[in-house]
Nucleic acid binder design. Structure first.
Length: 763
DNA sequence: CCAGTACTTAGGTTG
DNA sequence: TAAGTACTGG
């Protein structure tokens, strides 16, 4: 089998060992995806029915990529039959098949986080609780944690330990909120993200025949990113694997970065207990990064106490050192990095997609966005507010949702008076009160005031009647009309399209909103077109997992020519030739909230490890000394993580040339040597001082080659003997790189940069 | 009931 | 800063 030759020894063993429980601990860049992919391909080539394979990934993107790669080996038709996807997407489908068993309609809605929080907020208000002690996001977090640990509302209330905990934090009503929330979701026929896992567990726990069915179906189970699974996920896998025990989990404890949403490293350790005769394989050879990057990353992860022993190494080149770049402000950081990318791209002929800017928080993207736009460089911001979370999209989707499931409370509240149709806040409140009193959904109240009297004026009732009639008429079309036709009709007759059309000439934002709606409709059209002619796709089909989609899923290969901007979290699993890890400041990265406990700080460190190991060839670390936060500029100290890297892998740059070079003797970037003494343990004050000393150190220790990497055609340079000149041409790579330079006094010269000792001059 | 305005308060990562 | 909320006057 040819593809097996592409594997190293440990990879190959992990692929060919197909029976029984196995765990693969895979270091960063060690070919983990390759092992998973080939393992599945191998299973199929051994004659195994793809229908019996369950492969769980962490992101939709990973699943899609894997399906494609497997398709290339065994054929797309076969690959399609594998149950592959995120926990959420795979099990939401299973839940739809079996929804009635657990009291849900099979067309249940999936509430996204926004929906959940908005409902919780309403509940807090309805229960007359103080919204400062009960902040929706905090309450949501508690409920989420409970579900991830499979604690039902009843169990939550009955649990004396939790009760005590909540009393001590002066939030004794959390249990009641949880119970109300769960009840309202049930009435609305809605599940939130955590419910998808929670109710899968309930389903497999309470219905042995269902469990048996899926145990037989999924005889071979693979789980990617096992270190990031939470208890609910762990238990699902454990139950499904119980019959055949053909389970393969792949993970890297050093890259566990999701404990905030319940991920549990214990799952890796538990594996040993659940399957005592398991086989353990370690993938330790890194194929992705330079020695410098691998070793720098090793030097930092070493500081963590909790980890499984492994030695990641590489055969790759030494590579250049990791540059540390200081800027004065966050905006200047943006310009500096944009400039650095521009220069490197020109010098090396790199492509835009070779670059990524990685940050801790989404809001940091702005400065880079602006700087890149000014330099006319294409970029794409991943994450942040996704397409499906935009207001106008959510509004239209709410109509779709209501058509499929009119009990969907959040959707109803969202659009019952949008566009404006004279149904006011009081009316809505009174409907909710009535619904709660009768223990039914809002929809049941408004569609039958006769049976369920509510304190609603006759005028309002008339308007509501129009509304319910409209929604019902949409609902009646669901099975008869294809998704696109119906979607378009809804957009029109709901009044949303008209509303947006009217506002269109107000400004560019309004235009964009309108275009977004058009884009959504176009997407639905494509969805319909992709269907087999005998099985037209309905809007309900489209809505099935739209809540689980993210923007990354839409990306097409042809529009990859851009610099990527994303959080480190979303960069997991990706790789780029050149990465820029920015905002390396205390209180930002590591995050302020993580400074209180060792485990949290270690998670931040793992996050930094993940960031570093995304880089294939080069890496730059950047920080600013001041940053705009909440409308004011605050001073920042460099992150402790910079100090924690063994300094032999680092190279310190001075202040960026964009804004400050002029004040520095009129000459551009000046390399300063690093004199050491930075490798002290934690503590901010002294760090800052020593970094300042470094940048003001006049006894230069030139690292000219690195500096010259940024040299581009058109630059003005200064030469010791020939004076000022202009770069006309660049040839050769690495140490052999040479430049043809025109010197007004001496004519054109071709010089090896290694020896030329040039300085770049601004303008 | 609605629209416009003044005021408050965030703070983080994802399916 | 920016978004979301509360209040006020029509």
């Amino acid at each position: 089998m040819s593809y097996l030759d592409e594997l190293n020894e440990s990879q190959r063993v992990a692929v060919e060992h197909i029976y029984g429980p196995i765990m693969v601990i895979a270091g960063a860049g060690s070919g983990k995806t390759r092992v998973l992919t080939y393992r599945i391909a191998y299973l199929i080539e051994q004659g195994l029915d793809p229908f019996h394979i369950l492969a769980l990934t962490f992101t939709n993107k990973a699943a899609k990529e894997m399906t494609e790669r497997i398709g290339q080996i065994v054929g797309a038709a076969e690959a399609k039959n594998i149950s592959m996807g995120t926990f959420h997407s795979v099990f939401s489908k299973i839940l739809r098949f079996n929804a009635e068993r657990i009291g849900f309609p099979n067309n249940f809605t999936i509430y996204d986080t926004q929906d959940s929080k908005s409902l919780i907020k309403d509940i807090i208000k309805e229960l007359n609780l103080d919204d400062k002690t009960y902040k929706p996001s905090m309450v949501f977090g508690r409920i989420s944690a409970a579900k991830n640990n499979l604690i039902s509302p009843e169990a939550y209330i009955a649990n004396t330990e939790i009760e005590l905990e909540d009393k001590q934090s002066r939030r004794p009503e959390l249990g009641r909120i949880y119970q109300t929330y769960a009840n309202r979701c049930l009435k609305a026929g809605a599940m939130d993200f955590d419910d998808l896992l929670y109710f899968t567990n309930v389903l497999l726990r309470d219905f042995p025949d269902v469990l048996h069915y899926y145990q037989q179906k999924f005889q071979y189970i693979l789980v990617d990113e096992y270190q990031d699974t939470n208890y609910a996920q762990y238990l699902i896998v454990k139950k499904l694997a119980a019959a055949y025990q053909n389970i393969c989990v792949v993970g890297d404890d050093a890259q566990s970065i999701y404990s905030f949403r319940g991920a549990n490293i214990e799952n890796i350790l538990n594996f040993r207990k659940d399957y005592p005769d398991f086989a353990l394989y370690k993938l330790e050879q890194n194929y992705r990064s330079t020695k410098n990057i691998v070793e720098a990353a090793n030097s930092i992860i070493k500081k963590n106490k909790d980890q499984i022993l492994k030695t990641v190494w590489t055969d790759n080149n030494e590579g250049s050192k990791i540059k540390v770049q200081r800027s004065l402000t966050d905006n200047e950081e943006g310009r500096t990095i944009a400039q650095a990318i521009f220069e490197r791209k020109t010098a090396e002929g790199a492509r835009f997609q070779d670059f990524a800017i990685l940050y801790r928080t989404n809001k940091q993207s702005r400065a880079f966005e602006e700087a890149l736009r000014k330099l006319n460089m294409p970029y794409k911001i991943y994450g942040g507010l996704s397409f499906y979370q935009r207001k106008e999209i959510k509004d239209l989707l709410a109509y779709f949702r209501l058509s499929a499931n009119p009990h969907d409370e959040e959707a109803l509240k969202r659009v019952i008076n949008y566009p404006k149709r004279g149904i006011g806040k009081t009316t809505i409140e009174n409907i909710i009160i009535a619904a709660n009193r009768y223990g039914i959904s809002m929809w049941e109240v408004i569609s039958d005031f006769q049976s369920f009297p509510a304190d609603v004026s006759a005028a309002a009732k008339a308007k509501i009647y129009e509304f319910t009639t409209m929604i019902s008429s949409f609902g009646a079309e669901l099975d008869k009309t294809d998704a696109f036709t119906l979607a378009e009709r809804i957009a029109k007759s709901s009044g949303i399209l008209r509303e947006l059309l009217e506002e269109k000439d107000k400004g560019p934002e309004e235009v964009e909103r309108f275009q977004n709606i058009e884009e959504l409709l176009a997407g639905i059209q494509e969805f319909v077109r992709g269907a087999a002619p005998d099985a037209p796709r309905t809007l309900a089909d489209f809505m099935m997992d739209v809540a689980l989609l993210t923007d990354a899923d839409q990306e097409k290969p042809e529009d990859r020519n851009h610099i990527s901007l994303m959080t480190i979290h979303s960069s997991k699993g990706l790789e780029f030739h050149h990465i820029f890890i920015v905002g390396l400041e205390e209180n930002l990265f590591p995050s302020q909230m993580a400074l209180n406990s060792r485990p949290e700080l270690e998670e931040e460190r793992r996050l930094f490890y993940v960031a570093l190991t995304r880089g294939m060839r080069s890496c730059m670390l950047s920080y600013a000394t001041s940053r705009f936060t909440w409308g004011q500029s605050i001073m920042c100290e460099p992150s402790r993580f910079i100090d924690e890297i063994d300094p032999q892998y680092l190279q310190f740059e001075t202040i960026s040339r964009t804004a400050n070079s002029r004040s520095l003797m009129g000459s551009g970037s000046i390399e300063r040597g690093f004199t050491g003494g930075l490798n002290k343990p934690l503590g901010g004050g002294p760090q800052l001082r020593s970094l300042k000393e470094v940048s003001q150190n006049k006894s230069a220790n030139p690292q000219q080659q690195a500096n010259m990497a940024s040299l581009v055609v058109g630059h003005n340079v200064l030469h010791e003997k020939f004076g000022k000149g202009k770069v006309l041409q660049l040839d050769g790579q690495g140490p052999d790189k040479k430049a043809t330079i025109f010197f007004p006094q001496h004519g054109s010269k071709t010089l090896l940069l290694r020896f030329a000792n040039l300085q770049i001059i601004e303008d």
